[in-house]
Design a protein around this nucleic acid. Structure first.
Lengths: 231, 231
DNA sequence: CGCATAGTTGAATGTGCTCAAGCGCCGTGG
DNA sequence: CCACGGCGCTTGAGCACATTCAACTATGCG
């Protein structure tokens, strides 16, 4: 988790990230306060109550965004991918926890700085609005997903989503990929138990819809069959 | 469902709505294209595929935002209250359906017009970003809510949320209120069946936590007891 | 090698779902 | 005015499915 200033010219997603809409001058202003950090799996990127660096862009890797209630139970409410936004603006009370799922890198910014930049730079505000709207859509898809009754529907839908996310091309889904989540994390995301997730996966494999390669490798054998299970 | 131009000077929420950040001139520009409409319970405010008037502000009443999948099943993903945003920007493919829950009034705008206004007026973009971020937070709370295992937890959480929403003052929750949703709609929202919602409510009443007054009247008898059930 | 952690599998329990019947309310029409 | 039918809500019985508790295996790390 070593620190460094945020050098945009070395940034692999400088074109896709929200920073892309900023001019040279604003970018340098951001760089002055921003921090770039590396994380390994399990590291906390933004802690629940952190008010200093409450905002970040994911540069590389993957992260989970979770609520954590009184008894320490974690509930994953979203996954983040490169160029995605981490942390909430204008939301002091929200106790969201952001954690690296794989080795990752993120660009951290002080909340107030971003907020003031948003107010002074229309393009940034528009860009962030776009991104947040997308996140909102994703959150609503997740609601749709976990309100499915049967565990097979939830797991199948999640697998299809990962297949899409794992694909380099937008048009085609990947047929083989690695699950970025542990069974426990999948369970948290889907509102199920670890055991049920495990059983459901073995069931899907028994029925020839998927094939497991080790604990995290998945091969989709019958995409249409999986899609049919979702509904 | 009678139409009318959008007269902002008659608007009861002109101060709270996103329009508040606009100057006189922009407001008039909005008014030129905007339409104000009344709806009664069950009316569609924004249809799933509507691309003309894809965006609106709720002025009065309450609305539900739902997805509707292939077999016609409706899934409520959010509730909207006055000054709330209806419809998605930058999201052409999203098939969200917005429906009035009570007699309501909304201000409809062509999507492109809002999008161009967002790009030219930083204050509007910032304001909408704020609102969308809030919506995102609410969506994530809903995820949190429906991922609770037991039906009592879900129903209790929903009741507490309504109690808060029904209260005029922010500090105190209302103790007695009317459910704005039918049993079926609560079921859609919570990912349960009508029967389970009904049974759970009778169970909560039997245990002395709430009291039912007719089909929709609710009196909270033991708020702490309800809160304890949520976790 | 041995421990710790993640994942799988089994048996028993419990909870929500399904199917089905019954109730109360309200508006319609005879 | 009352009978009828529709609709929303409730209640019951049986069943299917996910959870729980528990043992066991596999994998990875010291």
């Amino acid at each position: 988790m070593n620190d460094g200033p945020a050098f945009c010219d070395q940034c692999t997603i400088a074109d896709r990230a929200i920073c892309a809409v900023l001019g040279e001058a604003e970018r340098e202003e951001l760089t002055r306060y921003g921090r770039r950090r590396r994380y390994s799996r399990g590291d906390t990127i933004i802690a629940a109550g952190d008010s200093n660096y409450g905002f970040a862009t994911l540069i590389r890797g993957a992260a989970k965004i979770a609520t954590i209630d009184a008894d320490g139970t974690e509930r994953i409410v979203a996954l983040a991918h490169p160029a995605g936004l981490l942390g909430q603006l204008f939301a002091p009370g929200d106790d969201l926890h952001v954690m690296a799922l794989t080795d990752s890198e993120a660009c951290l910014f002080p909340r107030e700085q971003i907020e003031s930049l948003v107010n002074s730079h229309p393009a940034l505000a528009a860009r962030m609005l776009q991104e947040t709207t997308r996140d909102l859509g994703r959150a609503r898809s997740l609601i749709d997903l976990i309100s499915k009754r049967k565990s097979t529907a939830r797991v199948a839908a999640l697998l299809l989503e990962f297949a899409r996310a794992a694909s380099p091309a937008a048009c085609h889904d990947a047929k083989a990929f690695d699950l970025p989540l542990s069974r426990g994390e999948m369970a948290q995301l889907l509102g199920l138990t670890i055991e049920t997730v495990s059983r459901t996966l073995t069931g899907l494999e028994r029925d020839g819809l998927i094939e497991r390669r080790g604990a995290h490798g998945i091969v989709i054998r019958d995409q249409d069959g999986l899609t049919a299970l979702v509904t």
